[in-house]
Nucleic acid binder design. Sequence first.
RNA 1: GGCCCGUUGGUCAAGCGGUUAAGACGCCGCCCUUUCACGGCGGAAUCAUGGGUUCGAUUCCCGUACGGGUCACCA
Length: 486
Amino acid sequence: MKTDNIRTRFAPSPTGFMHIGNLRTALYTFIIAKKYGGKFILRIEDTDQERFVEGAAGAVYKTLKDCGLYWDEGPDVGGPYAPYIQSERTGVYREYALKLIESGNAYFCFCTKERMEKVHEQQKADGITPAYDRHCRDLNPEEVKKLLDNNTPYVIRQKVPLEGETIFRDELFGEITVPNKDLDDQILLKQDGMPTYNFANVIDDHLMDITHIVRGREYLSSTPKYNLLYEAFGWESPCYIHVEQIMRDASHKLSKRDGDAYFGDFVEAGYHIPAILNYIALLGWSPKGENEIYSLDELINEFSIDGLSKSPSIFDPVKMKAINAEWLRRMPHDEFKSLVLPYIKKNCKRDDIDFDVLVRTLQPRTELFTDIPEKVDFIDTLPGYNNDLYFNKKMKTSPETAAEALKAVLPVLEGISEEGWNEENIHAALFAEIERLGVKNGWLLWPVRVALSGKALTPGGGVELAAVIGREESLNRIRKGIEKLV
RNA sequence: GGCCCGUUGGUCAAGCGGUUAAGACGCCGCCCUUUCACGGCGGAAUCAUGGGUUCGAUUCCCGUACGGGUCACCA
């Protein structure tokens, strides 16, 4: 594969939010360009006026930017091949379609949609693959001129050779050969003057000097027709890389209708953006080594086309969550803290607590950012709890032993001053008491946890909890615990 | 249905003629531990199928089954 002066493009049609499968294609496209020091171009394919969705292009820009997939050329940033929005390039397509007619590789077709519907119906009834019946393919020039002069509506169709075969090469799938007789005389220019995707994309890719076409696998079977177009123009065809789809299960692709398949949904669900990219990169591509955690830069480094899979992969939310959790655990404390603080604040209005201890205990226990609010809901106010929480088989504790333990703990904690109230001192004091009493750690600490949080599952144990919520609140809660127990 | 493509544990997957068929997630067990989690150790679990080719096939070829894609004036 040639890797000099690579230019790749991501060419979405703006019909809504960015689907995760689309994003993955964009990611691979970006990576391939960057890996070889090439350019990544964004082009908006909005030739279907009926499907136009207001603001959808903006959503594409935002998602790409949020992910760090910055484009070198595109609608908003411009570039030497502007414009990058197809609806602003319509003149170009018409010009090239006409050239094709001149060279005998395309023709005017005056068939109406109604006629085509009938033809297709009949073909289906006859058990034939529906295709254009080439009714207008060999109209004589005078006839064509007459119809044109009368302003008869028309489309322009590709004149596919009746015989022979078309061979093209895909970097992943290898050489693919298709008999020309199986190829339809597809429409290049629609009646409204707009090009079809099939045409516009070939013209633009060539005009914009795109060298590597990375796109979904669904385009694999139309590629021979594109290649025929390149040949008709005498253009060199690009390097094709068709990437397989992401599935919901073995037989359904992950569709937008499944919900939660949009990039934004994952962000909202508490995923860290680099982890999302990391996971989807791994869905359908496998690195050489055994590491699975990659930043975007590392992906660019590690990426190799031969690691791409030729079969569809099933999206696994469990694995995705695990990748996210791993990202969170590996994150430097301060970064984690700044990302997580807004989630803490949702359920915790106090600002006099020890955030460092809290965040540190939270970090290994968090899979998604959205796990956080529920984990810190005991800080502002002690939730009501049942004394049965003091039962812990492994710690050999019960409400009775807890009363004893808390009574022993109270004076010890009272002995720590406001200034000296920190994790280290609390730990030292409590463990000294444990030693003095000759009890197991848990015998003393489990009741502290319960009394301080009212929960069995908390970020950190008794020592950390005390450090987090502070001296006054800790002592209050211990006293309250004792009261509740006697 | 025609054409094109694919098929390794539950999932993601490595493998590219000879391997005890990696690794990860998940699952199970054990250890560590102030619970949970983290961490550590171990375990169960895979080459769709039938023929070839070959001294030898997960790997190469053909068929079958299954799955996907495509067959629009959508992209």
